[in-house]
Amino acid sequence: MSSQVESAMTSSPKMRNALVLAEFADVKALLSAAEKVRDAGYKKFDCYSPFPVHGLDAAMGEKQSPLGWIVGIMALLGGGGALLLQWWTSAVDYPLIISGKPLFSFEAFVPIIFELTVLLSAFGAVFGMFALNKMPRLYHPIFNSDRFRAATDGGFFVGIEAEDAKFEVGQVKQFLTVVGATHVEVVEEEMD
């Protein structure tokens, strides 16, 4: 946190730098900028686009999402839970002979095992994704930038965060201009 430079603003809440936000013209510029930011050794940075950009994960040096593991565990819980539930209720707690069939008739339990596997996996996929993305998070300093509204419209941005070890406002601004940004701004947030 070497970068808590006080802003020159005269208004009462004390502001500090949150990130430097640079806008890029198109997908191609965003991709090449992401590669250069990555190669320059910045760690806490992110790219913003109105749709997922193919190849950006590699350009940013992002690892694969671990979501599959969460879903896999949920799938096992769903399928295993459904099997146990049906076995225990039908064969142990409330044994009821129907059409002379065995109490633990595995075949008849398959549809619900399948459905509950899918249901819990879907919960895992959605809520796991929310957790990994730290959603819902309604406030983020990046929303203090007016230009950033374009990130969900047609704009492409790179943001280097003040928490990055290498962060130094002037340097970062200059660096982003050099890698092809059409507009660079410092986004501030209120100090706690």
């Binding site: 686009s49 950006l56 992002e62 929310f130 959603m135 998070r137 309604l138 929303f143 943001g159």
Partner: peptide, 10 residues
């Protein structure tokens, strides 16, 4: 839910 369109979210 505070979606930012960041690539780490995408």
């Amino acid at each position: 839910l505070g979606w930012r369109g960041s690539n780490k979210q995408w």
